[in-house]
Amino acid sequence: MKVTLNIWRQKNVSSKGRFETYEVDNIDEHISFLEMLDMLNERLLKNDQEPISFSHDCREGICGACGLFINGRAHGPMRGVTTCQLHMRMFNDNDVITIEPWRAKAFPVIKDLTVDRTALDKIMQGGGYVSVNTGGVPDANSVIIPKLIADEAFNSAVCIGCGACVATCKNASASLFTAAKVSQLALLPQGYPERKYRARNMIDVMDGLGFGNCSNTYACEVDCPKEISVLNIARMNREYLKSIFVSLYS
């Protein structure tokens, strides 16, 4: 098959970008979308043109490194997949495909399709953990957690930190990302001792980094490759209110 690609090219953080058009043909429909970009990059390099920078690593939907805005959707047209899990059979011969980087104030474009997502690490540093040191912890089975609760916490914990929720949100909010961690730890007994502060601390960091507010459009849930539920945001908001309450009365 053959496709025409409109790809965002940008030399570095400070330069202005623009779209460039490329054609790729002889594509086997069974290869992945990123393998199609590899083909293009091989060809560019052969012709002394600089390959297109894009972030990727595991290529199986778990590391969260990849993330392209494809035809106006974070991670492309399919629900529940990352960019690296898209295969060319999901497109049609002669399609025109527009590929852009994640766009958000907190994610500056550093080259072509690669953006800087270190802001997400900073949110985690704001409290996305249980404060236990190595050693001196109780036997694993001394803490009993009902299966349904453990499974729910797991469903929040599957976030891969790709940033699709931010990219797809018109306010560039990181609420779903932050809420997934807050929820996981709010559900589990291990998270209780620090529950009073966690949501507030993480949200404060998030706000300070230039992410926008959540206005409940739920676009994030639609484009999240792990289909993390917006109910997590509701839980985070409750946690946040509780923590404000605690700080007022203590």
Binding site: V130, V132, V137, D139, V143, K147, A150
Partner: peptide, 22 residues
């Protein structure tokens, strides 16, 4: 054994049985 204890203390959501044990 210590590894599993450590991970559970960190809030790693291992798969559990209906009785709540790992």
């Amino acid at each position: 054994s210590n590894i599993i204890d450590q991970c559970v203390a960190q809030g790693v959501p291992f798969t559990r049985e209906y009785g709540g044990l790992l």
